[in-house]
Design a protein around this nucleic acid. Structure first.
Lengths: 378, 378
DNA sequence: GCAAGCGATGGCAGCGCTACCATGCGGCAC
DNA sequence: GTGCCGCATGGTAGCGCTGCCATCGCTTGC
């Protein structure tokens, strides 16, 4: 039984007339084509592209010429397969809506600029199970490094990241036991310090306003409560969230997005609704500490609407220092967080680690700043 | 970092005594391991994972069991190499800061959810040359599809995308000659319609305010001028940008980011500065049409500060309908753009095309809505 | 009863690159 | 001269997967 399709006799000359291109290749030049044209070995081309200093000047210039002439584009999938290492950095953020994460992202992109690193981003929607799934997905690409938000990964997520052989940076929060490295700040300290500022300004009946509470928001709330307790104001420390004001219906209406709207529900409109609720049920409240700036802006508008004077009748504080806070009338106090810096530091760390440098600090507290403005100047 | 990932995971009885690991493999189970354990061929495992309906129930369940038992994770780089097709969709946005693009991005991610598509995002900073470079980079991954912003790619970019063998969607604008498909709306029509609304409300001396003018902003400005001309108000049609008010110094200060700050300079503070400039140099202006909502918010705050009544003394209109516009006091008129929908439609189109469906419309105008609110209710 | 058809399965040969050696060569110590 | 080191370069053998057929057993049509 001779079922060899290729008879060995003289079929070296491939006829142009038979089957149209049996090859699985898409016809683009490969590293072998470049090597042939430059009259060198393929591996030398590979080296010339990745570590030019390993190749003599003569060959290097020949290779460069061939690359340009053929318009050669390296196939990163082949490279990643052969070296079991890609140049993709996986980034997991809880939300793509909040300006907070947009700024982080900008820092990451700016820091990754001009390198061969590619960012692959995923939205885990404040959902640890989803995060687990996304980590699994990411690891299939054999990424060069990973950036994840927060410190509350599931046990399985954590195990996967620990086994992952590359730098892992957790961002936006702090922990003394990071998977690998962590860059962020203490939300509890931030909440405590802003509350202390409000108390120092003479406010006594302070309400904490939030949309939905992420783990990090809970940290701020803890800080708020501790500061109030430390000043013997426990009785006045009350937190209000959208759950208190029966906004579920309104939330459902929003749903242009398939996202559970609750997660994204921290808008100025929410701020107005929450503040109306407070005026009705707790008229003696003299300051509101909003879990984010959008809520604070809404509170300001509601005060304008009702003719309530800020900061005389009500103090308003936000969180994050988005750019409208300083421009508001009156300017709104808030906590400036270093989001851009965190993103930038995260990708920079990964670059350094990939270059073989040893990690500096494992735990990097970038802190935050209390921006005391007119809205809390009693 | 764990350096040696479970070399001796006991159960599989790989002889530990022979050659000191010559393999370049990282020791993770491959499709061959799964095939061996399930007692089938490797290709059958591949099929069971990609097109389960092609494999009999019996084998499929055996394979599923083996996958779980071995904790098999497919190597996407190998898959991409073998099939010369990855599951990555490249997305090019001009900015990661503007909420506009954040919303587009959210639409893209939501629409890509639950599929095997991975999004790879790049920030081209309103720079066509940078865009060209990024397209080159992206194509090295042999992406499944591409989404690019706007319609002003360089000739080379355009050629690369035309030669690219996969769906390409241009978004956020319209053209009658798309590379492949385009989903967006006419900025000129939007600018014209909002201007017509202002004129209809009785405003006559209308100023157009902008930070930096992207090609799309220019379209809005053209619409503004046409509408003014059509109403014989040419003489009153004047546009102000940051260049008019010597804000370069302020802009330089901003520079936390390596980005040329001009590109990102559309903040409420800019709105305040521009409006002060207008009050000084053109006190008769009775309405401002802001190229984006952040500027409009700034104008509102400046009016509050100066005691100027809105909408009686000054009408204010923005562009995009970010969530603070409806919540402002008074509520601010604006143009609602369907950013989320555009992103969602873009990725959905790509999914459909990858599933072999033929493109529906090549040019998809999602339109926009004039949101007439109190701030222009004369 | 037999050819043809069909669905399920598997073998083989790449995809384009890089890790791992081997090779060759000039220079230096002895 | 001999041996050895270091450097530039190349050959070979994969990396883990999938495209392309071949195969096999069973059904269908006449």
């Amino acid at each position: 039984m001779v079922d060899e399709p290729h008879t060995q006799s003289g079929d070296l000359t491939i006829s142009d007339h038979d089957a149209p291109r049996k090859s699985r290749s898409d016809g683009r030049p490969t590293i072998a084509d470049v090597a042939a044209r430059a009259g060198v070995g393929a591996i030398t081309v590979s080296r010339a592209l990745r570590n030019p200093q390993l190749v003599s000047d003569i060959l290097r210039s020949k290779i460069d010429e061939a690359v340009r002439a053929l318009n050669y584009v390296p196939n990163l999938n082949a490279s990643a397969l052969a070296s079991s290492r890609s140049d993709v950095v996986g980034v997991l953020l809880p939300s793509l809506t909040h300006t907070v994460f947009t700024d982080v992202l900008r820092g990451i992109y700016d820091g990754g600029d001009g390198t061969k690193l590619h960012i692959q981003l995923a939205n885990m929607r404040y959902n640890a199970i989803e995060e687990e799934r996304l980590i699994t997905q990411f690891l299939r690409h054999k990424p060069a490094g990973m950036i994840v938000s927060g410190i509350e990964q599931t046990a399985k997520s954590r195990r996967m990241l620990e086994m992952f052989d590359g730098p892992v940076v957790q961002i936006m929060d702090l922990t003394c036991d990071p998977i690998d490295q962590v860059i962020g700040f203490s939300h509890e300290a931030a909440g405590r310090r802003m509350t202390e500022h409000l108390i120092a300004q003479g406010y006594r009946r302070i309400a904490f306003l939030s949309g939905w509470l992420s783990e990090r928001s809970n940290g701020r709330l803890r800080g708020f409560r501790h500061a109030m307790a430390a000043a013997d104001l426990d009785a006045s420390a009350k937190a209000y969230s959208i759950l208190d004001v029966g906004m579920e219906a309104a939330m459902r209406d929003l749903g242009q997005s398939p996202t559970p709207p609750m997660l994204e529900y921290a808008t100025p409109d929410t701020g107005r609704v929450l503040f109306r609720h407070i005026r009705e049920h707790a008229p003696k409240v003299d300051a509101v500490f909003c879990n984010n700036d959008a809520l604070a802006l809404g509170v300001l508008f509601e005060c304008l609407h009702q003719g309530i004077r800020v900061p005389e009748d009500i103090g308003i504080a936000g969180f994050n220092d988005l750019d409208f806070m300083a421009a508001a009338e009156p300017a709104l106090s808030t906590v400036r967080t270093h989001r851009y810096r965190i993103g930038h530091a995260a990708i920079t760390t990964i670059r350094e680690r990939l270059n073989g440098e040893t990690p500096g600090v494992r735990i990097d507290d970038v802190g935050c700043e209390i921006m005391a403005r007119r809205s809390t100047e009693r």
